[in-house]
Design a protein around this nucleic acid. Structure first.
Lengths: 193, 193
DNA sequence: GTTTGTCAATACGCAAGCGTATGGAAAATT
DNA sequence: AATTTTCCATACGCTTGCGTATTGACAAAC
């Protein structure tokens, strides 16, 4: 787990990335400065040089996650010109095993911290707006596109949890891919008038 | 927050119900014996007479929740003879503001504890089996009913989180009811052959 | 080569929360 | 009425984890 690179010293980005690793697999409440320090091969004497406290670290890490995540979505989805294709891409991206998904799922869990709730709400609203626009792009009216976006996004969030809860019954890639295609077939279609 | 009843002394059930209250609103990790004792108007000297330790309490509370929840579903859904009606009842029940839903949602969050994961998996598999059976009842074949059940259940789980994440934009009853009906209309229909 | 700035180690204080030990009061039993 | 059971209070020890204070090592600047 130690940092074997040639780097002489750490910078805040190193701490933030290590923190995101912990958040992805154990949640925000598992972020302990002394543990992360150990994972980076130093002690917390170093930590308090880079950050003022634990919360400062977590907020910085989440800000980094939010920024990176936005970039990925922009590149992989919003680059597509056709709304129908965008929606399909969205569902496929949802099924990919990205760290970003894990982080989103654990944030849902650690919502009791207000700074987590804030990021979560921002990201969720942004993604919902994207989805809604895409559904409008394939012919849904404003109100219906809103509900359909919410429905689709709920499936995404639900899937994240189901995958964790039922891991083992859900792991093999083929099943996941099949399921993703099924979901897309059910949730992407012209609006019923 | 004190117990104003005429009861002279507490029994394990009192502790379990108080614990479920905490779990519903703050999650498993927020269960602190001294706090729950205070909520019940006693000190932890009492607690360790009824239970051996904190984990014992949580496990007992979750067992109670599981049992009660099963009973509610049995009564409100499985009493219905028609599969189509059962599915509709499921989606409507999902949108009702029950403590049981809150608990389920927080359990998803506190899955890192193995005893939580165990209950969660049991409950989820049981509910999925119910849903699958209902979808088979309206004509889905085995494989498709499985995927459709998973999809529908994901919507449920996703909704629980969305409701918390976007509270305020989601609170008024009318919207929720509308949305529930929309979801039902999208997810309950004869299978496409 | 001396000084300054950067990054990290060690040691400490402190609060929260679990579990234990012990004693006491009230109710039930005999 | 005496005794046993049931339920609870108080006090203590122990661990975890945050944050601070102090010192040190190495590199860059001068």
């Amino acid at each position: 787990m130690k940092n074997n690179n040639k780097k002489k010293s750490l910078n805040p980005a190193d701490w933030e990335l290590a923190t995101l690793d912990v958040i992805a697999h154990q949640g925000v409440s598992a972020v302990a400065v002394e543990n992360i320090a150990k994972a980076l091969g130093v002690t917390k004497g170093s930590f308090y040089w880079h950050f003022t406290n634990r919360k400062d670290l977590i907020v910085a890490a989440l800000k980094r996650w939010q920024k990176d995540d936005r970039a990925v979505i922009k590149e992989k989805i919003w680059s597509l010109p056709d709304a129908h294709e965008r929606l399909k891409a969205w569902f496929l991206l949802s099924a990919e095993p990205l760290q970003s998904h894990l982080i989103y799922a654990t944030l849902l869990a650690d919502r009791q911290h207000d700074f987590v709730a804030k990021v979560l709400k921002e990201v969720t609203l942004e993604r919902l707006a994207y989805l809604q626009k895409s559904y409008q792009g394939i012919g849904y009216d404003e109100a219906t596109s809103k509900q359909q976006a919410l429905l689709s996004y709920s499936v995404y969030v639900g899937y994240l949890h189901m995958a964790k809860t039922l891991h083992g019954k859900f792991k093999d890639t083929e099943n996941i891919e099949n399921y993703a295609k099924y979901v897309a077939s059910q949730l992407i279609h012209e609006p019923e008038q």
